[in-house]
Amino acid sequence: MNRFAKLGLAAALALGLAAATGARAADEPNNDGHGLTPSRQSWSFAGPFGAFDQAQVQRGFQVFREVCAVCHSARNLSFRNLSQEGGPEFTEGQVKALAAEYQIKDGPNDAGEMFERQGRPADRFPWNYPNAEAAKATLGALPPDLSVMAKARSYSRGFPMFLLDAVIQYQEHGVDYVYALLNGYSNPKDLNHNDYFPGGKIAMAKPLTDGQVDYTDGSPKTVQQYSKDVSSFLMWMAEPKLEERKHTGFKVMAFLILFAGLLYLTKKKIWADAH
């Protein structure tokens, strides 16, 4: 059993002992099975000039690595991504050192054998389980891959908000849902109860408790802070080119609007004698 499984066991024990904070007994999940509607959070990466809060995404990675990754995979994440622009932006040295902490299964070599070697930045972030069957056998259910989780969940905004969302550029439905879910364990007696999960019962028992992850930058060690940070990290992992996209978008928009203005004047001049 590797150290991540041990850590997971420790986390589970800690969870069992922890007193639930932020209980929301007043907000009973509704009975139609959809769960409560998440509330909108303020995110640094929202809006046309949105960008990731580097320190937050770094903390989020710490939570992800120490808590989420115990069970969940992130098969689209490579170590090298962690030093790319527009994300946690760890230094290349840090990423190299981080990757080296992991043993990666490689092969087959010239003898036809699989072997383990030290991780490299080019490696994918390894999963704690060799395959889905093994994860299911240990955990009882298959934890979904988290690579694009922040885009793979949503909630209904109803009419007319679902139309207005395109105008106000609200697209953080997924992150808001994840954040709400991580804060939605309102029943200290039932750690699988979640206000925001459809049906109110979630296979993932309350994963975060206060003080569980040791932040070194003085940020509060609370479930709320952890979930905010890790949600932010999940958004980056789901959309690592988000900043580049919005930067490029501004340039494209500025160009197109200017171009449209010039074309309008040209058209006006051409048509001046036709009416």
Binding site: P48, K151, D165, A166, Q169, Q171, R245, K246, T248, G249, F250, V252, M253, L256, I257, F259, A260, L263
Partner: peptide
């Protein structure tokens, strides 16, 4: 070009 502004809005700002 006006249509492209509309198109670019979705591509760059609300792609999903």
């Amino acid at each position: 070009v006006c249509f492209m502004i509309f198109y670019a809005w979705f591509v760059f700002y609300t792609p999903n």
